[in-house]
C-alpha cells in the first residue's frame, strides 16, 4: 500500500457501508431501549412507587416495625461475616492462582466457580443435610444443644456458600492481566513478601477488590433461596430482610413489603453505581 492517504480514503468511502442506514439504527435503538424499559426500568420504578403509595408516614412506620429492624440487623451481621471471609479467601486464592503456575489450575478455577452453578435451594439443602436433625452431625449437635440449621449460624453458612466465588473470580483475571513484574522488581530490590503485597499488589488490585466486595455484599444481603431453606422463618429471630419481604407480601401487607423491598432496591442502585465507578477505574488502570 503506497500511502496512508489511500487507506484513509478507503475508510471514508467504506464508512457508510460498514454501518446501517440511519432509520435502521434508530429503529434498533428504540427496540432495545423499549425492551430494557419494560424489563428493567419499569419493575425498578414499581418498587418505589408501591413503597410510597400510602405516603411517607406509612413507609417509615413499616420500616420501624421491630421485626423489620431485627431482620435488618441479622442481614447486616450476615454480610459482616460472609464478606470478610470471602475477601480473605479471594485475595489468597488469586495470589496463588495468578502469580504462580501449577498443574490443575483450570480445575481449581472451575471448582471455585461451582457455587455459581448450584441452585440456591440446593445451597441451603446441603447444610440441612449436614447439620439438620436427620443430618450427619444432627444427633451430636442436638446432644450438645448447638443449633445451626434454623438458626443464625446456618444462615451465615449458606450465605458464605452462595457468595463464595464473587471476590476470587474478580481478582484472578485482574491479577493475571497485571502479571508479576512489579512484584518481582520489589522483591529483587529487597522488599519483604508482605511489604511487596501491601505496597505493590494491593494498590494495583484496589478497585478490583472494591468491585468484588460490593457484588459479594449485594448478594450476601439479598440472598433468598438458600437462606429461606435454612432459616426456619422465625420472626424477629432468623428472618433476613429478603425473608421479611416474603412474609409481609404473603400476609397481603403489600405496602410494608414494598417499603422493606425498597431498602434492598436502594442497595442495588448503590451497588450499580459503585460497580460502574470501579469498572472505569480498573479499565483505566489496565490501559496505563
Amino acid at each position: 500500500m503506497s500511502a496512508p492517504i489511500t487507506k484513509h480514503a478507503a475508510r471514508q468511502h467504506g464508512s457508510r457501508r460498514i454501518s446501517e442506514p440511519a432509520a435502521v439504527r434508530w429503529l434498533l435503538t428504540a427496540i432495545a431501549l423499549a425492551f430494557l424499559a419494560l424489563f428493567l426500568a419499569l419493575p425498578l420504578a414499581a418498587v418505589f412507587s408501591q413503597a410510597f403509595e400510602k405516603g411517607w408516614e406509612t413507609y417509615l412506620a413499616a420500616l420501624k416495625e421491630p421485626d423489620t429492624l431485627a431482620a435488618v440487623k441479622l442481614t447486616l451481621l450476615t454480610a459482616a461475616v460472609a464478606v470478610p471471609l470471602n475477601l480473605v479467601f479471594g485475595v489468597a486464592a488469586s495470589w496463588a492462582i495468578a502469580k504462580f503456575s501449577f498443574t490443575g489450575k483450570n480445575l481449581l478455577i472451575t471448582l471455585i466457580d461451582l457455587p455459581f452453578s448450584v441452585s440456591p435451594v440446593i445451597s441451603g439443602l446441603i447444610y440441612v443435610l449436614i447439620f439438620g436433625r436427620q443430618g450427619w452431625l444432627g444427633p451430636w449437635l442436638e446432644a450438645h444443644d448447638i443449633k445451626i440449621v434454623f438458626a443464625v449460624p446456618g444462615i451465615i453458612l449458606a450465605t458464605v456458600f452462595v457468595t463464595f466465588p464473587f471476590i476470587a473470580r474478580e481478582l484472578i483475571p485482574l491479577m493475571e492481566s497485571q502479571g508479576k513484574d512489579e512484584e518481582e522488581a520489589a522483591m529483587v530490590l529487597g522488599a519483604s513478601g508482605l511489604q511487596t503485597f501491601f505496597r505493590v499488589t494491593l494498590p494495583n488490585i484496589k478497585w478490583g477488590i472494591i468491585y468484588g466486595v460490593i457484588l459479594c455484599n449485594a448478594r450476601a444481603m439479598g440472598e433468598f433461596g438458600a437462606v429461606s431453606v435454612v432459616s426456619g422463618h422465625i420472626r424477629g429471630m432468623t428472618n433476613t430482610v429478603p425473608l421479611q419481604v416474603e412474609i409481609l407480601y404473603n400476609e397481603y401487607n403489600y405496602t410494608a413489603a414494598f417499603a422493606v423491598a425498597s431498602l434492598l432496591a436502594f442497595l442495588a442502585l448503590v451497588t450499580l453505581v459503585v460497580k460502574t465507578i470501579a469498572e472505569w477505574q480498573v479499565q483505566r488502570q489496565l490501559q496505563d
Binding site: L33, L36, L40, A41, P43, L44, A46, V47, Q50, P120, L215, A218, M221, G222, E223, F224, G225, V241, P242, L243, V245, E246, Y249, A257, F258, A261, L264, A265, L267, A268, L269, T271, L272, V273, K275, T276
Partner: peptide, 19 residues
C-alpha cells in the same frame, strides 16, 4: 443504560419476584 443492564445481578431475587 449500560449500568442498568446489571440490575438483575444486583437486585435481590425476592424483590424482583414481588415486583
Amino acid at each position: 443504560v449500560d449500568a442498568l443492564v446489571d440490575l438483575p445481578f444486583a437486585l435481590p431475587t425476592a424483590v424482583a419476584g414481588i415486583t
